[in-house]
Amino acid sequence: MRIFYDTEFTSLSAAAELISAGFVTEHGQEFYIEFDGIAKSECSDFVLEIVYPMLRAPGVIVSSPLMAAQHIIDWLAAQAAYVRLVSDNNYDSYLMSKLFHKLLDYKSKIEGYRQEVSPNLNIKYEHLGFPDYVAAKEFKRACEDYFLDHPDCQHHALHDARSLKHGVMRSEGYYS
């Protein structure tokens, strides 16, 4: 099953930490999670100005990366045994992978070494790719249309995931 997702994070740097993540399945199930306790001093000016004011949306709020990773893994596993996480940039998959590795490292210390974060879940990361210019243009137009209907929501992880799904599905011909 494809699951479209987006993340918001403290800054564009190797030290970046997740602030929130939103997930939307092909069939419309959604999951949103925020990280409590991120210091504003760790955030870029862009994040403080644009992302921070949109936080505290309905969803799961966690205080640690390990709790976040476990909530996400549990939700993904409830959707399907094999998920294809689709994002529009490599940074999302880098941060998600980093988060899952923190959980794996923690679990390996308390439960003995395991090679997966969940024995019932297989995750593959995918990035957008379009067969032609027309599909790419249609994707972009669909994402823009989504935010015309949802003003002031861009750079909120769940809305960005919804927009991503909307754009991909329309570019594939599912929406007119």
Rank of each mutant, 00 (worst) to 15 (best):
A14E: 05
S108I: 00
K109P: 09
Y106L: 00
D132L: 12
V24I: 15
M67V: 02
F147H: 05
L128W: 15
E42P: 10
G22A: 04
L76W: 07
Q115C: 08
Y106A: 02
S118L: 02
F147Q: 08
L12V: 04
K137V: 09
A68P: 10
L85G: 13
Y52H: 14
E8G: 09
M54E: 08
Y91F: 10
A136S: 13
D88I: 08
S64R: 04
L121N: 06
L85E: 14
Y5P: 14
T7N: 12
F4M: 06
F147L: 09
F35T: 01
K140P: 03
K140V: 01
G129F: 10
T7A: 05
E42C: 12
G37C: 09
N122I: 11
I72R: 11
A16V: 01
Y52A: 12
C43M: 14
G37V: 04
H27T: 15
E17F: 00
S87Y: 08
E138P: 11
Y32N: 09
P119K: 13
D74V: 01
L85A: 10
S44G: 04
D88L: 04
R84F: 13
L104M: 13
G22E: 08
V24E: 15
L121K: 06
L128A: 07
S41C: 07
G22R: 03
S11P: 00
G22M: 02
E30L: 05
L121R: 11
P65R: 06
E126G: 05
S64Y: 02
F23E: 03
Y125N: 10
Y5V: 02
A39Y: 03
W75T: 00
E49A: 13
C143W: 01
S93P: 06
A15I: 01
V51G: 14
E138K: 15
H150W: 12
D132W: 08
P65W: 00
I19Y: 08
Y106I: 00
L48H: 03
E116W: 01
S44M: 07
S118C: 15
M54G: 07
